[in-house]
């Protein structure tokens, strides 16, 4: 774990009431890499991402973004697509995107230019003057993705970005993600879709019940799991079942 890494998460824990949802999670994300976070529903992925975004504060441990705790200045440099999709449905697409770009600190003229650029990149430039609610679900999702990218962030955090996208748009998004990585952007990609994670990500973090169960480059993970040719999905399912079995055993023992 190098301090020069743009994201360093060190022994972070978080509980809600009596439920400990994240237990001493540590990882680092390198500049220009596409970093995958995988895990079952409720494993704690979204909570980790929300802590990186300073929406939740960790109970223990520390998070450093560009060597400092996530504050306002750091947030300007991160683009975030949350799992809970939301957008101002009653407003025009261009207006919504310009607002989010300006909240990231962009001056008005640059914000407008960026909106045009990204709408064009996702092939939805003709919808700039239309209200969000009049767009199809797929196009609304593209607009939400543009929200995360419009300010040209150095770090992009995408929580389940492929949910609800058809194969054509999935390909469009994965191409955009690869291009961003080539430009030197740091990308965190959280998803259930293991084949996509496998194709896209250089390193992976697997969380189960709030704890890190696997962490590292894909090849090393396969090696450590004695499954050099196995898919990430197989490894993931095996670990998840093992975890469930151990928990059942513990319950029976009690």
């Amino acid at each position: 774990m190098l301090d020069a890494d743009p994201i360093v998460v060190d022994s972070v824990s978080k509980s809600f009431g009596t439920a400990l949802v994240v237990k001493e999670v540590s990882f680092a994300v390198r500049r220009g890499e596409i970093f995958g976070i995988v895990g079952q529903n409720g494993a704690g992925k979204t909570t980790v991402l929300r802590m990186i975004m300073d929406i939740f504060r960790p109970d223990a441990g520390s998070i450093l973004i560009f060597g400092r705790p996530p504050d306002n200045a750091v947030k300007q440099r991160i683009g975030y697509l949350p799992e809970e999709r939301g957008i101002y449905v009653g407003l025009k697409v261009g207006r919504v995107l310009e607002y989010f770009a300006r909240l990231k600190g962009l001056p008005r003229a640059r914000a407008r230019a960026q909106v045009e650029k990204w709408l064009y990149r996702f092939g939805v430039e003709e919808y700039a003057g239309r209200r969000v609610e009049t767009l199809s679900k797929g196009n609304q999702q593209k607009v939400q993705l543009v929200c995360a990218l419009v300010a040209d962030p150095e770090i992009v955090i995408l929580d389940e970005p492929l949910a609800g996208l058809d194969p054509v748009n999935t390909r469009l998004l994965t191409d955009v993600i690869r291009d961003l990585a080539k430009e030197g952007k740091t990308i965190i990609f959280s998803s259930h879709q293991m084949p996509v994670v496998e194709k896209l990500c250089m390193r992976v973090l697997m969380i189960d019940r709030g704890e890190v169960v696997l962490y590292g480059p894909l090849a090393e993970i396969r090696q450590s799991q004695n499954s050099p040719d196995g898919s990430l999905e197989d490894i993931y399912v095996r670990i998840a079942r093992q975890g469930a079995g151990e928990r059942d055993e513990q319950t029976n023992h009690r």
Binding site: I55, K75, Y80, P82, E84, F100, K104
Partner: peptide, 16 residues
């Protein structure tokens, strides 16, 4: 209702 809060809070502090 529009679920926008999380995106907003990823850019600004609650007080802002």
């Amino acid at each position: 209702q529009n679920r926008v809060m999380e995106i907003l809070l990823s850019s600004v502090q609650p007080v802002e």
